[in-house]
Design a protein around this nucleic acid. Structure first.
Length: 311
RNA sequence: GGCGCGGUAGCGAAGUGGUCAAACGCAGUUGACUGUAAAUCAACCGGCAUACGCCUUCGGGGGUUCGAGUCCCUCCCGCGCCA
């Protein structure tokens, strides 16, 4: 396959900067199709609060199509099912292959850094599945104990961990899992693309404003009703899907323990904090070309960058 | 008008004579993160200083004390009860 045929355009950035709109724009101009890289939009039934922009969308052949542009990796699992990067990687890579085979430009678009990483860089240990038994067994152990266990299994790895990682139970459990299966590790998928990575950004206050506006819109668009439906369908608050921002915050409200107003405040704050975390992740990737959506000609600049790369 | 309770760092809230620049939570800042990633976790978080440290704080003012956020007096403000 020639280099030209192996293009992958990536659009990333924090929540609320307008990634989707740009993606659709570029898809139209460069004959592309979009693969969403969003860990919560994969869930069916989580529409309003995850910002799936489906107003003018049509469901066609098992996928959403907006303005003639297909968007894949939305609504791929039921809200009571777990979903992880490995599944994402598998499905998304297949999609990319298909799009390239159809001589179109795949556009990987989203705010989930790890998902993007799984496509662009691969994840070495991605073939090691979670060990539910182990997780259950070690659930009650302290962070210190887990660290000791890991140290015994793989001292070198343990010593590499920084303070943050050493205190992170979730991550420690995962590391123990990996250490235990080290010898039988399956080969990881590694693909090399001709990649252009675009990052969208805007000044802090502007981002905050955008987030506040979006939240207001989502409330108007019926987030409460959507959650009510999920609750009626017995989707538990503890599910991965319901841990999404804009959903989990409503738990105390539905239980009559918190006012609507407070829930919404909490929601906005969490949304903003999330955006900051996304930025922390993306900022350290030197391949990303950043565009400030508050500046005047950012779209033209983006188009120029893509054109230069495309030709 | 009387009695009672309370005013602590951006917010909430501990603290009752020294170990208090002041627990803890939230917010904030910076960051980590290769199968939960919209998750999970870390550091910092009065001012100045890289740091030893120095300086200014616990409603205002005045006292007691070697020493006060902590005790006394007084004033201001909020809440509750009685008038």
């Amino acid at each position: 396959m020639s280099n030209n045929k192996n293009r992958l355009l990536v659009i990333c950035g924090p929540t609320g900067v307008g990634k989707t709109a740009l993606g659709i724009d570029l898809a139209k101009k460069f004959d592309g199709e979009i693969i969403s890289a969003d860990s919560r939009q994969v869930y069916k039934g989580l529409d309003v609060g995850t910002g799936k922009d489906l107003e003018n969308a049509k469901w066609k052949d098992g996928n959403w199509v907006v303005g003639g542009v297909p968007i894949y990796m939305l609504d791929v699992v039921k809200p009571n099912e777990p979903f992880a990067v490995s599944q994402y990687q598998t499905f998304a890579l297949k999609r990319i292959d298909n799009i390239q085979l159809g001589n179109k430009l795949p556009i990987l678009l989203g705010g989930t850094g790890l998902y993007i990483k799984s496509i662009v860089d691969g994840i070495e240990t991605i073939g090691i599945p979670p060990n539910r038994k182990l997780r259950e067994q070690y659930k009650a152990k302290s962070v210190q104990e887990l660290f000791m266990i890991l140290s015994r299994l793989n001292p070198d790895l343990a010593n590499l961990l920084n303070k943050s990682e050493q205190s992170n139970k979730q991550r420690l459990l995962r590391r123990i899992e990996i250490a235990q299966t080290e010898t039988t590790r399956p080969k990881a998928t590694k693909r090399i693309f001709n990649t252009l990575m675009l990052g969208l950004i805007c000044p802090n206050q502007a981002l905050k404003d955008r987030i506040n506006e979006r939240v207001a819109t989502w409330i108007k668009d019926g987030i409460e009703k959507e959650i009510h439906t999920l609750v009626m369908e017995n989707i538990g608050w503890e599910t991965q899907a319901m841990s999404a921002i804009g959903y989990r915050q409503w738990k105390p409200y539905f239980e009559g323990k918190m006012s609507r107003e407070k829930v919404i405040d909490r929601w906005k704050t969490d949304e903003y904090q999330y955006a900051k975390r996304q930025l922390t992740w993306f900022k350290k990737d030197p391949r990303i070309k950043w565009f400030n959506v508050s500046s005047k000609h950012w779209k033209k600049e983006v188009e120029k960058t893509v054109t230069d790369w495309y030709n």
